[in-house]
Nucleic acid binder design. Sequence first.
DNA 1: CGGCGGCCTTGATTTAAGTCAAATCCAATA
DNA 2: TATTGGATTTGACTTAAATCAAGGCCGCCG
Lengths: 235, 235
Amino acid sequence: MSSLPISARSIPFPTSTRKGSVGTVPISPWDSLYFAGCPDLIGTPFSYAREEEIYGEAEEAEFVYKLLDGAVRTHKILSDGRRQITGFHLPGELLGFEQQDRHRHAAEALTDTRMLIFRRRQIERMAACNATVACQLWSLTARRLRDAQDHMLLLGRGSAMERLVAFLIDLDLRLGATGTFVLPMSRRDIADYLGLTIETVSRLMTQLEVDGALLRCSGRQLSLHRTHLDRLIAF
Amino acid sequence: MSSLPISARSIPFPTSTRKGSVGTVPISPWDSLYFAGCPDLIGTPFSYAREEEIYGEAEEAEFVYKLLDGAVRTHKILSDGRRQITGFHLPGELLGFEQQDRHRHAAEALTDTRMLIFRRRQIERMAACNATVACQLWSLTARRLRDAQDHMLLLGRGSAMERLVAFLIDLDLRLGATGTFVLPMSRRDIADYLGLTIETVSRLMTQLEVDGALLRCSGRQLSLHRTHLDRLIAF
DNA sequence: CGGCGGCCTTGATTTAAGTCAAATCCAATA
DNA sequence: TATTGGATTTGACTTAAATCAAGGCCGCCG
């Protein structure tokens, strides 16, 4: 359970034998070392390489992660290999927060990433006696629930094009709403997030470019035409 | 905002002019008048008729509801009429819990229902200064998030048959796992929950019966063959 | 009891997206 | 710079589920 960091294969502490490693972390406004504004909780900087697993499904939820930079995907897999990506996580966002002892999904780094890690037990202990912290945690979970419900609507009732467009717009917003960004994930990841195939995603991408709704430099580097894209969805 | 119950169209209090009405409520183990085990929060019994709206999307989230009996659906609607049912709620479950001032979806009674209603502000006030209550609320939201993520997997990667079978099994479990129950919702509701059409749901239902995976007495009265059904899904 | 109207089922046909199969692009590295 | 292997695109074809269109069932009320 709360064994020392050395033992479990999943543990991303400096003492671990895993690929991840500590790096220097420049602190910008949003990436305070504190968790939920609580000065008693100080995170430990840590980093993961591209495609490295952060934690596995059903693995013990020992840590909570606050993403400093890079990008992470979380997913669930069925026995026959079908995969559903449940979310992408960008800098400033929280990761690995479970209320139970085991993770409900796996998490992997999409790109090289840096994070702060916190012990879940410690945070829970803090929440148990500090209503402000507990409310903030509740808030975070509520936010995720809302996102999940929006995504349900998209998956259940959106056409392939609507799913892709909504995804691109959402990603742009979360990356700063500049209209220009580099996709941190592969077509496969996008397809598995949207419940589509890579071929469909690829075809739609091409069609959007042909229609002038976006510009592609090299595969993953995009410039969106918001006004044009907005017209394509009802979401 | 926190005006008296009389004013707003949405208010389901005894003094309201709406269809809903107070009834006597027999208290069984799970339906304590308390909220989150907190004796300071006493709910007011109230009831809704079949198909009656409990609250609308984007309406102010003034109340929280604890279902005593009956069944409720929550949904989101797009401008063009497409609807996604985000969840069905059965006795003992909580409803209308938002962290924001407005509801994210609409709620309607599937059958005649009885509930307890609580003022959201009061509960929030309680949570703000009582860590135990806050943690319980967090727990509830986390549970819903997990359900939502499971449903995402189903919507994103499940075939029509897998969606229906998973739905039937889940419903049976939540209704007491007897294997025999009456569907409280129409085919349209099921279809809108599973991201399918009513015709597809109907055809699959027939096929399940032909295959001996379930028995139908009259449309909505079902008996499931769990072992047979379990073989049809990977979820 | 009979008819009305909303569900539900069934059948025929269409279509959006999936599958299978090849090219191409492109980035890492030798 | 040349090589190589994964990622992406594109094309041809298939299919699961949607759509369109009748019918049948059933509960309710006159």
